[in-house]
Design a protein around this nucleic acid. Structure first.
Lengths: 156, 156
DNA sequence: TTTTTTAGTCAAGTAACTTGACGTTAAGCT
DNA sequence: AGCTTAACGTCAAGTTACTTGACTAAAAAA
């Protein structure tokens, strides 16, 4: 890639600086790529799409659709569209609430449970790999630091 | 938010586990929100849109459009569309290469330089805040750990 | 010179959302 | 009880941030 500019720029251009945001971005991007690639490789192709990110918000007892939207930080309509696809691919199912006819609970199908357990395995494997890479102490330190950043946001 | 499921789920649902990917994601999201919000607050509304992320790849000497696409990890067409908007808002300009009539160099306008310098200021401010929050030692440790994760990806 | 590659552009399509408008059901008030 | 208001899920249409495909002009390679 020859980016050697043959002329002087018209104006003095600003410098690119190194900053923590860029590090955070690239590390997260690396984690996400690695994780989704592993899931796709195992046949869970839909993890490569946006709906893959949704299922991490479905807890052990299931979750009502609207609550899922809130947790995922999306509109209920967006969640619904992804859910339509996930239902079509037999990952989750909608169960009507017996006490509230408006409400529907989202829960995993048997296939969905398998996918989610595979996801948990991969998450643990990546984590173990990171600990090997930087040492347990540094890993724990990083986790604490990230927690501080997150807590600092919630505060505002 | 009442997520108390009135019935037992049909099947035993899997547990949500805590993992480093989620921490990375939330911390990065926090950084990005904070940064873009600060830029938008200062009047650089276009930083709230996707094109805001592009300009961090324009170096001090400018950059050819296609090289910019490669750096940003996008197609040249996508970059072009964002660039059209950035040019319209007088943030960058396209300068034809005197030695290669096909090539155009992207560089900041005076306004763009101002925006970029403001961005650098904010990045430094957030970084300083993080160092205060967790201590210089922990901050440096986190940065080293993130670098290891990033390097590990590049390797593959 | 002829062929192939590269830089930028125009057009059309897709993914991942959004806002707006409804119908149904439940909850709160009088 | 009846009336009003709010909540849940749904249908439809629009927007943003991309993509793939086709093309022109210019440079580089054969």
């Amino acid at each position: 890639m020859d980016d050697e500019n043959p002329m002087e720029p018209t104006r003095k251009q600003p410098e690119l600086i190194d900053h923590i945001g860029w590090d955070l971005w690239r590390a997260t991007d690396s984690w996400v790529r690695r994780f989704t690639q592993a899931m796709v490789d195992r046949g869970y192709f839909w993890f490569g799409e946006a709906r893959g990110g949704l299922i991490q918000h479905i807890g052990p007892g299931g979750v009502p659709q609207t609550a899922l939207a809130a947790r995922a930080g999306m509109t209920k309509q967006a969640v619904q569209q992804h859910l339509d696809d996930l239902v079509k691919d037999s990952v989750v199912e909608r169960i009507p609430d017996p006490l509230d006819a408006r409400r529907k609970w989202v829960q995993f199908t048997a296939d969905g449970i398998l996918a989610f357990e595979t996801a948990n395995e991969i998450k643990r494997a990546i984590e173990a790999d990171y600990q090997r890479l930087m040492g347990k102490a540094a890993f724990d330190g990083m986790k604490r630091s990230l927690a501080l950043i997150i807590a600092d946001t919630d505060r505002s």
